[in-house]
């Protein structure tokens, strides 16, 4: 199946959704991201891999300006989504984040009901005019996140009462409810057991039909399973970026090869 998918990928040339050029990030005195440039395609799953502390999560958080919430972070360079510079002073990060959703490492449902968790985004962005519309959005999002059947009878119960895998899928439903164009996922399966991981991975594969998905992962197997493009980060630099199949079978850089074969990381 993997082979088949690789063929499919190669033939499928898509337009660029996100383009980053010469991005540098400093946390206080630490130079966390060093001159990273990358083009991320629409309707594709792109995986960021690399050893811990290599800057892959930091870079991911630049794409929806989550680093703005950290006082000591400083970002230079230029990141464009659909050709618009997201660090332009005129851009409101709130609007940007509605367009670029995010799913986090640890499932973080709000201490509210399942319904309110999913309805939170649509409510703050005003996506529903009536209760019926809101109900519809919530149902659609939960269906997309493949959790509707499990929770449809207990929408008013707290989201924190679900199992880990369900919580993470709830968070994905919450993210897709605002109808983003890009979905960033920061190690979405690291806190989940293998069964839940399989469910989420299946979901990611579905999601790429509508979104540009960027996933940070620790697991190379996961990157190989779900992504079409892979970027390898090491010590804050982007070492190699290309088709997932190429990266795993014939890496150009020796560091990538060392990582893939388990010598560093």
């Amino acid at each position: 199946m993997n082979d088949m998918r690789r063929i499919e990928r190669a033939t499928d040339m898509k337009e660029t959704k996100i383009s980053a050029r010469h991005v540098n990030v400093h946390y206080g005195d630490t130079h966390a991201i060093k001159d990273v440039s990358v083009e991320i395609q629409d309707k594709t799953v792109t995986a960021f891999i690399g050893p811990s502390g290599c800057g892959k999560s930091t870079f991911l958080r630049c794409i929806n300006r989550m680093n703005d919430t950290i006082d000591i972070a400083r970002i230079d360079g230029d990141i464009r989504i659909d050709g618009e510079d997201i660090y332009d002073p005129k851009v409101d990060p709130v609007q940007l984040r509605a367009k670029v959703g995010m799913v986090f490492q640890k499932p973080n449902p709000f201490p509210k009901s399942i319904f309110d968790n999913v309805a939170y985004g649509p409510r703050i962005h005003g996506l529903a005019r009536t209760k019926a519309e809101l109900d519809e959005i919530v149902e659609k999002s939960l269906r997309r996140a493949a959790i509707w059947d499990e929770v449809k009878d207990r929408l008013q119960q707290p989201g924190t009462g679900l199992s880990g895998g369900q919580q993470q899928r709830l968070c994905i439903a919450r993210a897709v409810a605002t109808e983003p164009e890009v979905l960033l996922m920061d190690e979405p399966c690291s806190a989940l057991d293998p069964i839940a991981t399989a469910q989420v991975e299946e979901l990611i594969d579905e999601l790429k039909q509508n979104y540009s998905v960027v996933i940070v992962t620790h697991s190379m197997q996961q990157a190989a399973r779900v992504s079409q493009k892979t970027a390898f980060f090491h010590l804050g630099t982007l070492v190699e970026y290309g088709e997932t199949g190429d990266i795993f079978t014939k890496p150009e850089d020796s560091r990538t090869e060392s990582y893939i074969t388990g010598r560093i990381g």
Binding site: M66, R97, G101, M102, F110, P111, T178
Partner: peptide, 23 residues
């Protein structure tokens, strides 16, 4: 993580405080 979750959905700081942090 709860604040991040809310910011990640595009909530403003006051919306996050009122609707996520306070509850």
């Amino acid at each position: 993580s709860l604040r991040d979750g809310s910011y990640g959905l595009g909530a403003t700081q006051s919306e996050t405080i009122r609707q996520v942090v306070m509850p």
